[in-house]
Structures are given as structure tokens and as C-alpha cells.
Write a protein that binds this DNA or RNA. Structure first.
Lengths: 225, 225
DNA sequence: GTCCATCGCTTTGTATACAATTCTTGCCAA
DNA sequence: TTGGCAAGAATTGTATACAAAGCGATGGAC
């Protein structure tokens, strides 16, 4: 039935968006590099129209920045901006865990437990890729519980993907992986206790911890306040 | 061809955006009404291009909703969506007040005090318009303290404007105005005490209170959980 | 040699044309 | 009558053309 190539049936605007997002998140643009519509259009084989729409969407998500007069640049984030991003994440994820706490069932708890166990294994095996994978899965499972809270879900997903690009490297920092897994363990415990206040606090601290790690990785010379 | 836009300096896309935002926020579109590009373009005297860009921006802010297959509709919010909006606001504003707390100075405290006093006066005079005005000013003053936290600031401003349309009516509810002013008083006290935890909690409760009022106003028949 | 004005090139902003898709309507068959 | 299908109308998606605005380079005045 559906024999057509799937990559071709989504609208050009979406493909352009995915392509550019990927490019920004993997740092394929040098920081401050100007994003010229015509050039991008030619490179990707679209016209300027879908490119423009993709650029505007990326801007609304804060992935690129408008220049003073016109056009966009691939933004290099300042330490302050990274800090703020993580802080907002911490606050939203904390609140989300509070909501999630009220919706817990044993099936999910088992899944989370499993994630942690596998991440631990990967840690012992010193396979950071797999640690990263299972840590990611841990948060995915939690987010899935609140997909019906669309604003919240959308924001969390957006912000997390924004951050995942350097999150991986962060794990390589001394004990970064261990700290993350410990954080997840605390989160699981708070969920088991069905304590919303504790849930919120623990999640917030977890994200703030990862903020510290990320800042130290990204800006090693700077003091983190 | 361009005989009509000489008095306008801002780009068409921005004027289209402002116009449509205003129309949505004041309820000029009936809920569920389809927003056809061609029609809007003709009505407003633009071409479809700036209209499209404006519509996409409005969608990214959650003011309109994409239909299943194509196009947008002016969305009537469900109780659940209004609830979520206020909850996210509560969380963000709470965090913001925590930040603001660390930046307090006497000048700002005096201004806030003044706002509250004037709102009280207006309450006694039963001038709800002026109550509304000074309550709005109260939050404006707070937000101005964190304009440099751009994501946070932008989100708070966006969400608040979204909510202000029915906020005014909410005040007309029994004691709605008094409750709001009381909330502001608590906020001021928490700031005076320079207690970040208290600040966050008090602000969150304040927004949640206004959520309750708003829900009762918007959906009087429903039970509010 | 330096500063400023101006011209032209580059890039974005807007309009419009055209293609693709969805929605509607009306007809025909079961 | 109803269900489904097809044709055409309506509307969006994309490409392109054109207008306007910025940016840079060149050249002239001092």
C-alpha cells in the first residue's frame, strides 16, 4: 500500500526543519555563522519558503538567534544562557515529576528500575554510550506519563533535546555517569514513596547537578556560581 | 501598489501577527473558527506570506491550533488546558520570584508597596478597572527585574498576556479582587523577608488561586479539582 | 591618507503564480 | 436511502519573481 519513500511525503518545511535542527544541535554550523536563506535553500534543494518557515520555528525554540537587522545566526550559548536553560528545565521537570508522582503505577516503576540497573551495568562496563542511552530512556519513560499535558510535554522535550548534544560529553567527566545514575535512583525512591514534594525537589536537584556538570564541561575556565 | 502602507514602519509580518493576536485574545474569532490564509490576507490587505508567518508564530505560542490535516483554528481552551497553562505559569513565576528575591532593593519594594496601596484604594472605590490596572503593574514591576533572563522573561510575558483576557472578568467574582491584592501582599512580605523558598511558594499559591478563580469564571458548571 | 557619500551587490521581505492536497457536492449503483 | 466514488472547488504548500533594505566597496573631497 504505502510503497512511497517516507522521507519524501513529509512537507518540505518539516524536512528542512529537521535537517537544520540536526545541523545546529550537532554543531555543524560554526558559532555565529550566518544562515543565509538562499544558500541553505540551494544546498538542501528546496526553495526559500520552507527554509524560512523552518528558521522561524528554530528561532521560536531558541536554537538560532535573529541578528540585529536581518537574518539568523547559529547561536553559541553563553554560560548565562546555558545556566538559564537548565534552571527552567529543572523547574519544569520538577513540577512534571510532581504530576507524574500522582500517576504512578507498578509497571512504570519496574521499567524505571530496569533502566537504572542497565545503566549501572553499562557504568561498570565503562560503556558510556550505553549509560547515556539508558539514562535517556529513563527520562523518556517519565515524559511519556504526561504526554497529555501538551504544553508541559512539548517544552520539556524541546529543552531536553536542546541539551542532549553536550549531555553525552558531560558523562565523561569524573563520576558524571555515576552522579546521574545516583540521581535517578533518588528519583525512583521519591516516586516509590509517592511523595510529591520530595519528587519535585529531587528532580530539581538532579537537573541542577547536570547543569553543574554541563557548565564545567562547556566552560572549564569559568567559575560556576 | 504600496500606497497604503506609508504610515507603517514595522514589517507586514509583525503587523499581521499583532492584529491576529489581538483578534484571538479579544475573542473576535468564534471558537473553532477556521483561519483561512487567503481570506485573512484579503481582509487585512497583505499577501498570504506574512499571514502564514504570523499564523505559525501564533501556533508556536499556543494561541491557535493546527487542524488535523491543514490550516489553523482559533482555539477554545478546554478546562484542562487552562489548568495546565496556569500551572506552568505558577511554576515559572514561582521560580522567577525566587530569582527576583535575590535581586531586591528598596526602590522596588517601595514601588510594589505603592501598587498594592493603589489597588486597595481602587477596591474600596469599587473601580475594578483600576484594580486590574494596578495588579497588572505589580507583576510588570516584578518581571522587569528579570528581563535579562530572556527565556524566562519571554515565557512569562507570553503566558501572562494569554491569560489576561479573562483575568479581568475574574476579578468581578466575589472577592476575586480582594484575594488578588491579598496575594500580592503576601508576595511583598516574602520579598521583604528575603526568603527565597517562601517567595517561590507564595507566588505559586497566588497563581494557583487565580487559576481557581479563572476556572470558576470560565467553566462555572464544572467542578474544579 | 582619511572620511564620507554614493552606487551596486547581496540578502531579506512580500507578492504572486503554480502545484498538490483536501474538502464538497452530486451522481450512480446496490 | 445510503454508501462510495469522481469531478471540481477551495485551500494550503512550494517556487519564483520582484521590491526594498542593508552592507561593502569605490571614488572623490579635503
Amino acid at each position: 500500500m504505502d510503497t512511497k519513500d517516507r522521507s519524501n511525503d513529509s512537507p518540505a518545511r518539516e524536512r528542512a526543519y529537521e535537517f537544520l535542527k540536526e545541523a545546529v544541535l550537532t554543531g555543524r554550523f560554526s558559532p555565529g555563522e550566518r544562515l543565509a536563506e538562499e544558500h541553505l535553500a540551494k544546498t538542501m534543494g528546496f526553495s526559500r519558503t520552507p527554509i524560512r518557515e523552518a528558521l522561524h520555528k528554530l528561532e521560536s525554540e531558541g536554537l538560532i538567534k535573529p541578528m540585529a537587522t536581518r537574518g539568523f545566526v547559529a547561536s553559541q550559548d553563553s554560560p548565562e544562557e546555558v545556566d538559564e536553560l537548565f534552571e527552567i528545565r529543572a523547574v519544569l521537570e520538577g513540577y512534571a515529576l510532581r504530576v507524574i508522582c500522582g500517576r504512578m503505577d507498578d509497571g512504570i516503576l519496574v521499567q524505571l528500575e530496569d533502566c537504572i540497573a542497565r545503566a549501572e551495568e553499562a557504568l561498570k562496563a565503562e560503556s558510556l554510550d550505553r549509560v547515556f542511552e539508558w539514562n535517556t530512556r529513563f527520562h523518556d519513560i517519565l515524559h511519556e506519563v504526561v504526554t497529555d499535558r501538551r504544553r508541559l510535554y512539548h517544552q520539556m522535550v524541546t529543552m531536553r533535546q536542546y541539551v542532549l548534544r553536550y549531555r553525552k560529553n558531560t558523562l565523561q567527566y569524573p563520576d558524571g555517569g555515576q552522579r546521574t545514575v545516583d540521581g535517578h535512583r533518588k528519583i525512583l525512591m521519591a516516586l516509590r514513596l509517592r511523595d510529591p514534594d520530595l519528587c519535585e525537589r529531587v528532580m530539581r536537584e538532579h537537573i541542577q547537578q547536570s547543569k553543574t556538570d554541563a557548565l564545567q564541561f562547556l566552560f572549564p575556565q569559568k567559575e560556576v556560581q
